[in-house]
Amino acid sequence: MEITQSGRRGPARRTRATLERLAAERDIWVSTAHPEHGPHQVPLWFLWDGRAVWVCTAETSVTIRNVRADPRVRLALPDTADVVTLAGRAECFASRDVPEEAAEAFTDRFGWDPRAATKPHVYVRVTPATVRAWHGVPELRGRVIMRGGEWLGRAPETA
């Protein structure tokens, strides 16, 4: 992603840019940890539904094992020059239990329906409690744009 802005964005501009990226990007780094096996990080396709991030992976994956042991997760968009990180709690849904709206949106976005996979898959919904966004040193201060599940800066309606 190319950064064309210079200077420091305020909370509203950061929030708007973050929401646009969450709606547009396909890949997100998912970081989990298990009390006995330690940390694990993997890139997965994701869907932002306006309130939460949805990912899907095999039922036997390390990610699912870890989330079931400790639902705290961290997520990061892949661009290290324009950083967006989310921290929140994950909730697992077997394919048969996932809300239809989420499963259909995931299928529409990626052209793949995990419910029809030969091996069982689990959908994971991560509801963010904290979101940080910044690009460059000028934005290190004030990088928290969501705290306690509440956006700190209202995204303006227009650019």
Rank of each mutant, 00 (worst) to 15 (best):
P78E: 05
G111K: 02
R65W: 11
A102L: 03
T85H: 02
P39W: 09
K119S: 12
T127K: 09
H37Q: 15
A103F: 02
S61A: 09
G50E: 09
D108V: 00
V126H: 00
V67H: 06
E104A: 15
R21F: 06
A52T: 02
A17E: 13
E91A: 15
R8E: 12
V73T: 04
V30K: 08
S31G: 05
G38D: 07
P71G: 08
E100Y: 12
A58W: 14
T85F: 11
D79R: 03
A76V: 05
R125D: 00
T127S: 15
A81G: 14
D79P: 05
I64F: 08
R26V: 07
E91Q: 13
T32R: 04
V55Y: 03
P11V: 04
A12M: 07
G88R: 03
L75V: 06
F110Q: 02
D97F: 01
G111M: 04
C56F: 01
P11F: 06
E36N: 07
W112A: 06
G7R: 03
T80C: 08
G10N: 15
D79M: 00
A23F: 10
L75I: 02
G111S: 07
A24G: 14
A103W: 01
C56R: 05
D49L: 02
V53T: 03
P39F: 10
I64D: 05
A69F: 04
T80W: 09
W54A: 09
N66I: 06
P35M: 01
R51T: 10
D27S: 14
R109L: 11
V30M: 10
P120F: 08
F106M: 04
V30T: 04
L44C: 15
L44D: 10
A117C: 09
G111V: 00
F106R: 00
A33P: 15
F93A: 07
A33Y: 07
R21N: 10
V55P: 09
T32A: 03
V98W: 13
E59N: 05
P11K: 08
V122E: 04
D49K: 02
A116I: 05
A52I: 02
A52H: 03
V53S: 08
H40V: 01
T118E: 12
R9F: 07
A116S: 15
E91W: 14
A33V: 07
P71S: 12
A94V: 10
R109Y: 14
V53W: 01
A103I: 00
E100F: 11
A12V: 01
D49H: 01
D79E: 00
Y123T: 04
R72N: 13
G10W: 03
W112T: 08
R96Q: 12
P114D: 07
P35C: 01
H37K: 15
E91Y: 07
T107A: 13
W48I: 05
A24N: 14
C92F: 09
L77G: 03
R89V: 11
R68A: 14
A90M: 07
V30D: 03
T107D: 10
T32W: 08
N66S: 05
E36R: 15
L19I: 00
I64H: 08
Y123D: 06
A58S: 15
A94Y: 14
L47Q: 00
T85C: 12
R21M: 08
Q41I: 10
K119A: 11
R68W: 06
R21S: 08
D97G: 02
A116G: 04
E104F: 12
D108S: 00
T107W: 06
N66Y: 07
T118Y: 12
R13P: 14
E59W: 05
L75A: 07
L47Y: 05
